[in-house]
Amino acid sequence: MKIIKVKNNQEAGIQAAQIILEKIHANPGCILGLATGSTPITTYQNLIQAYEHKQVSFKDVITFNLDEYKGLNPTNPQSYRFFMNNELFDHIDIKIENTHVPSGLHTQNPALYDQKIHKAGGIDLQLLGLGVNGHIGFNEPGTAFDSLTHVVDLDPSTIAVNARFFDSIDLVPTQAISMGLKTIMNAKQILLIATGTNKAEAIAHLINGEITPNWPCSILQQHPNVVIIIDEAAGSMLK
């Protein structure tokens, strides 16, 4: 496990984008696992900037996103498909048919998503954020370590945190479809970003804590190739 310490989320975005760019330069057809939420926005901004400066092409890159809210149409401004198009895909030369986001509408057999990933060759680098309760993707505390892509009931703390993106907390979906913990662990490399004091407890459990489903992020201790980017606030509870 490699830990990179930065000053803030802006610097985290620069560092994370550089790692992703190095992966694309080494393999222009690499498969990236992507995340949503506020944490990776600066990373995506730096990737867009690199594309605009002709430092990279995404035309052969394939992506698989971690999760999607159950019940939201891809055109819904709060859907993660809409987020990805708006924050990244619409601004680079990636082929939209090479971008994959779990369907929030067709959730009868979510593990088919894992089959798509396997058929594509497996994820070369998986980008992750981190929930205040230790969730990665939408794998809430108690999720089985051997879980594949599945429908999850969102924890009240997750709903409360995500309410800032909606007009009302009552509009936040209570379920989502998410890559499972085993799906995430199958990635060849994992890159996790966490900034802010509210992530400090989860980071402490991720790096120094017992490996337990009570803190889903702790499973990353068992992965052979993990890079964690944190600022001083997120690392404030580390021993």
Rank of each mutant, 00 (worst) to 15 (best):
M1V: 11
I3H: 01
K5E: 12
V6E: 02
K7I: 08
A17D: 03
I20R: 04
K23D: 11
I24W: 02
N27H: 11
N27I: 01
L32K: 04
G33R: 01
A35H: 02
A35T: 14
A35I: 01
S38A: 12
P40R: 13
T42A: 14
Q45A: 13
Q49V: 00
E52R: 12
K54V: 02
S57Y: 11
S57P: 07
K59V: 09
D60G: 01
D60W: 10
D67T: 10
Y69M: 09
Y69R: 02
L72T: 05
P77S: 11
Y80E: 01
R81T: 12
F83V: 04
N85A: 06
D93K: 08
D93N: 15
D93F: 11
I94P: 08
I94D: 06
I94S: 09
E97D: 15
N98C: 12
N98T: 08
L105K: 12
T107K: 04
P110C: 14
A111F: 08
Q115F: 06
H118A: 15
K119D: 15
I123V: 15
L127C: 07
L130P: 00
L130A: 09
V132Y: 01
V132W: 01
N133S: 09
I136F: 03
I136K: 09
T143E: 07
T143M: 12
T143G: 09
L148K: 15
T149R: 08
V151E: 04
V152M: 07
D155H: 15
I159V: 14
A160H: 12
V161F: 07
A163K: 00
R164N: 03
F166W: 04
V172L: 01
P173S: 07
T174H: 06
T174E: 06
Q175K: 15
G180S: 06
L181K: 06
L181Q: 03
K182V: 02
T183H: 05
N186F: 02
K188D: 08
I190P: 02
I190T: 05
I190K: 08
I193H: 02
T195M: 03
T197C: 08
N198K: 14
K199Q: 10
A200M: 10
E201R: 12
A204S: 14
A204P: 00
A204Y: 09
E210P: 09
T212D: 14
P213N: 07
P216I: 04
I219A: 05
Q222F: 00
H223M: 08
H223C: 07
V226N: 04
V227C: 13
I230R: 01
G235H: 05
M237D: 10
